[in-house]
């Protein structure tokens, strides 16, 4: 995808976001300290105006450059590994409250080590178990960072 195409896609996305933001801003209470003075919705309206103008400017830039450059395509990248890495992070965050810090982190560590190119099972096992354990001991007992009031904390203190 060329940068011009990206700019157009981003501008359309931003315009949609701005519209949603404007709708939400209309719902804000009108509470001025004195008449003719700015209330809680003043800055959001300014931001709405700025976002609209800038998104349109980005759209115009994208269209102009698309015509000029005939949509020259920028470098193609392998998306599989980044998507897998992001999915691993998302699954880790979702699993953390249920599995607890150490078990969830061991699995997460192993997954990321594999994605970063580690293929030796002994290295993965050692790193995946050693890394989270060291971090757990360091933060829990070394720096007394206690994760309280949430399921994750109860589990992290297992």
């Amino acid at each position: 995808m060329s940068m011009a195409h990206k700019n157009i896609a981003a501008a359309i996305g931003l315009l949609a976001f701005t519209g949603w933001y404007a709708v939400l801003t209309t719902g804000l209470p009108d509470r001025d300290i004195m008449p003719n003075t700015p209330g809680p919705s003043f800055l959001p309206w300014l931001i709405t105006a700025a976002l609209s103008a800038l998104s349109i400017a980005l759209l115009v830039q994208g269209i102009t450059r698309l015509k000029r450059a005939n949509g020259a395509v920028t470098g193609q990248h392998d998306l599989k590994t980044p998507v897998l890495a992001l999915a691993s992070i998302a699954i880790y965050l979702a699993a953390l409250p249920y599995l607890g810090f150490v078990p969830a982190s061991v699995l997460f560590f192993a997954a990321l080590m594999w994605l970063y190119g580690a293929r030796n099972p002994f290295l993965i096992a050692a790193g995946a178990i050693g890394g989270p354990l060291i971090l757990f001991v360091l933060f829990r007992y070394g720096f007394n960072i206690i994760f309280a009031a949430r399921p994750v904390v109860i589990n992290i203190d297992e």
Binding site: L135, I145, F147
Partner: peptide, 22 residues
């Protein structure tokens, strides 16, 4: 392979420890 997973976990700890909020 060891450095990046460590950073990832530290990011989680750092953002959690800020306000003790998941």
């Amino acid at each position: 392979v060891l450095l990046m997973p460590t950073i990832a976990v530290l990011c989680v700890i750092g953002s959690y420890a800020l306000r003790n909020s998941f």
